[in-house]
């Protein structure tokens, strides 16, 4: 009786273990057989969760600021397997606008062939090719129909704003609207008819340390990134909101953009 009970527990555990270890055998690579994968962009500020409007943060320059608006483009997603096989997500399905005020937008959802992916590459920004394409190819998040305020497009200097962050800082001087508001609208894809600044960043992250993406049919693998927004002001370049309250299309924007790459950390992968 006692033995039977023990056996039961043992068998039960085996079943449990089996069900827990998902499909670890990597399927053969088949470009036509696509499964779900997402890249999750979880915005944080230093060691804290990003909370819009109500919370003040402190920058490396010693300035206090909050964040009222934060949105950025993620595009051109590529996955790589350990054997070097690369899958490029078709470009028409590879543009995402991550908006801090809309949690649904934190995932860049794509379809890729089943397989084990050890690294991922994406672009922070909108590539020059798409930025100069016929308007009929700029639908969805790329539709330049938005206004000057909420929009992510510069009408006067054709091109996307691909990183937009605004908020209040006591360090920022009073602006014409009477607020201590800072506005960072970063764009610049390199120019079409004449070369100019290129603030697009291509970011590649190794996944082997914190969990590779095991993409299988019937489930969605999720590569979870932490995006540390504090790096915008407190990255490799220390940026002062007192001296640079408005950064838009200017040479100085390059200093801000050069802080972007360090924002992204691969935290874990949910398979």
């Amino acid at each position: 009786m006692k033995f039977a009970k023990l056996l039961n527990v043992f068998v039960g555990s085996v079943i449990l273990l089996t069900s827990c270890s998902k499909d670890t055998i990597e399927p053969d690579y088949n470009e036509g057989n696509l499964s779900d994968l997402s890249l999750e962009f979880d915005n944080i500020v230093g060691g804290q969760k990003l909370i819009l409007n109500n919370v003040n943060y402190r920058s490396a320059a010693g300035e206090t600021y909050n964040i009222q608006l934060l949105q950025y483009f993620i595009s051109n997603i590529k996955l790589k397997k350990a054997d070097g096989t690369e899958y490029i997500v078709p470009q028409d399905s590879s543009y995402f606008l991550i908006k801090a005020d809309d949690v649904e937008t934190r995932f860049a959802k794509v379809k890729v062939p089943a397989g084990d992916y050890t690294s991922v590459t994406f672009v922070l920004g909108v590539d020059s090719l798409r930025s100069t394409m016929d308007i009929s190819r700029r639908t969805g998040v790329l539709d330049p129909a938005g206004g000057m305020e909420a929009g992510m497009y510069w009408g006067w200097n054709s091109g996307y704003i691909f990183f937009k962050m605004e908020g209040i800082s006591t360090a920022a001087p009073v602006d014409p609207t009477g607020q201590h508001k800072y506005r960072y609208h970063i764009g610049g894809f390199g120019g079409y008819s004449a070369p100019t600044i290129n603030n697009i960043k291509t970011i590649t992250k190794d996944l082997t340390e914190r969990g590779i993406a095991q993409v299988r049919a019937g489930r969605r693998s999720n590569i979870h990134f932490m995006v540390d927004i504090s790096k915008v002001l407190s990255g490799a370049n220390t940026i002062s909101l007192a001296t640079h309250p408005q950064v838009m299309f200017s040479d100085f924007s390059v200093n801000v953009a050069n802080n972007f790459t360090d924002m992204f950390t691969h935290d874990h992968t949910e398979n």
Binding site: D134, P144, M148, G155, W156
Partner: peptide
């Protein structure tokens, strides 16, 4: 200033200009 390189994108500028 030649800032707009495609006629199909031009009207956005005067439409959105304050």
């Amino acid at each position: 200033d030649g800032g707009i390189f495609d006629l199909d994108l031009q009207p956005i500028a005067p439409i959105t200009a304050h």
